[in-house]
Computed example of a mutant assay.
Amino acid sequence: MWPFSSSTEPKDKKVNFKNLDKDYAVSGQILPAQIPAIAAAGFKSIVCARPDNEDHGQPSFDEVAREAEKAGLQIVHVPVSGMVGQGAFMKFEQAMEQMPKPVLAYCRSGGRAASLYTMLKRA
C-alpha cells in the first residue's frame, strides 16, 4: 500500500528507509506529516527524485519542502523520470557536495534515489 493512498494523514508517521551507507538512505514516497520523524531520525537533508504529478494523490515537492524547511532540513528536487539524465545527475552530485549529511532520498519506491547514489559512487 502506498503511504499516501487513503488519506492525507498517515496512520503511522514512521518512515521506512534503507541505509546505503552512514550518510545516505533511501525510501519510498514520504508525506509532509512524516518530516518531524525524519528530522528526529537524525537526517539533515532530503533529496526528492520524484517528479510531481507522477501518481494521483502524491504530495507535491513544494508541500514536502515547506515542512522540511520548517524542521530545519535542507531539501532539493532532482526529478528523475525513466533513465537518469546528465542534468539530473549533475544536480544530484552538486547537492551531495553541499548538503549536510545524513541525507534521506526518496522517490516512489526508493529505486531512482538509490540509482542516483550508485551512479555518484561510480563516478
Score class of each variant (00 low, 15 high):
Ala68Ser: 12
Thr118Gln: 15
Lys14Asp: 13
Gly57Trp: 05
Tyr24Arg: 04
Gln29Asp: 11
Ala95Tyr: 05
Leu116Trp: 04
Lys70Trp: 00
Gln34Gly: 05
Gln98Arg: 12
Leu20Gln: 07
Leu104Ser: 03
Val47Trp: 08
Pro10His: 04
Met1Asn: 12
Pro59Leu: 01
Arg50Ser: 10
Asn16Phe: 14
Arg112Val: 08
Ser109Trp: 06
Pro102Gly: 08
Asp12Ile: 10
Lys22Cys: 07
Gly28Ala: 09
Val76Phe: 10
Leu116Val: 05
Pro3Met: 03
Leu104Cys: 08
Gly28Tyr: 06
Gln29Glu: 14
Tyr117Ala: 09
Arg50Asn: 05
Ile38Val: 15
Asp23Ser: 13
Met90Thr: 05
Pro59Asp: 00
Ala114Leu: 10
Met96Ser: 03
Val80Thr: 03
Ser7His: 14
Ala114Lys: 13
Gly87Arg: 14
Gly87Glu: 08
Lys18Ile: 14
Ile38Pro: 01
Ala95Trp: 02
Met96Cys: 15
Ala40Leu: 01
Asn16Lys: 15
Ala65Ser: 14
Asp23Leu: 02
Gly28Ser: 15
Ala71His: 02
Glu9Ser: 14
Ala37Met: 05
Leu73Cys: 03
Gln74Met: 07
Pro102Asp: 09
Asn19Arg: 15
Lys13Val: 08
Phe61Asn: 03
Glu63Asn: 01
Leu104Gln: 00
Ile35Gln: 07
